[in-house]
Amino acid sequence: MAQGILVFMEEREDKVKKTSLEALSAARKLADRLQETVTAVRLGSGDASENLAHYGADKVLCVRHELLASYSTEGFSAAVAEAAKKTEPRFILSAASAMGRDLMPRVAARLGVGLAQDCIAAEIVGEGQLQCVRPIYAGKAYAVVRLLASPAMATLRPNVFPVGKADASRNAETATITPDLDAGKIRASVKETKASSGQKVELTEADIIVSGGRGMKGPENFRIIEELADAFGGAMGASRAAVDAEWIDQQHQVGQTGKTVSPSLYVACGISGAIQHLAGMSSSKYIVAINKDPEAPIFNVADYGIVGDLFEVVPALTQAVNNLKK
């Protein structure tokens, strides 16, 4: 009988990612409902100092193998699938990060089970079945899907599930397994990782995002967007119009063909709010619009808005935020 929840913990530079702690915290809540255990699976060799037990793991399963030194879809998915076969979990969860979205489909394919990608809610229904809500049509609709095969698998959209409060009184057992991996079956792997230039906080992980659109008028003006983003300690985004005009690099683009973000606060400056832009940011908790056109559609989704000239409003806002933080 399948029991418990397995959570894949992503590590980058020897640190467990926050998005994985979100998945772990979500798993804890589901496991409490089921009165079952949570097993955190770590493939990295990084420092184990973050105590995964504090965030809800009952067991930490360290999967060690020299072939896991660098990421490969084949190697990692074989290792996670083997961990799943050993532990027979009811569910397998992961963050819907770049790695999670690459890895989990191949794990699901190996196990021959279903996977709900990029979920924004997960609950238990019936006799311990997993049911998830996932945005479709770029967030213009939500699908409620039930996972019918066992184990049920889901990836969780970053920034949507809160990280639980660390509970220092919790402990976890640790076990180590060495999966049976074949070097001949790892035919593609990551050879190098190059940091993207500029961005201090990664867009998809940022808690606050300030974006500029065509209303910015030119590349030099993105400085005021960056200053506001810095004041918030957040990241800088852009509309496609700004990216296509080459005012700002493509990695900043938010929207249907750019990144999907769900920060606590999204500030859209000089962005009209086209449906394809909304697709990438409408699941933000709070949306602020700064636009000189009171009829701009962005105001229909904004929680707060200022009708005005962004070249006056944005610098004044930067100053006010800096003053507040002092």
Binding site: A188, V190, E192, T193, K194, A195, Q199, T204, E205
Partner: peptide, 8 residues
Amino acid sequence: IEGAHEIV
């Protein structure tokens, strides 16, 4: 990937 790119 987040804040970087990978060469595969």
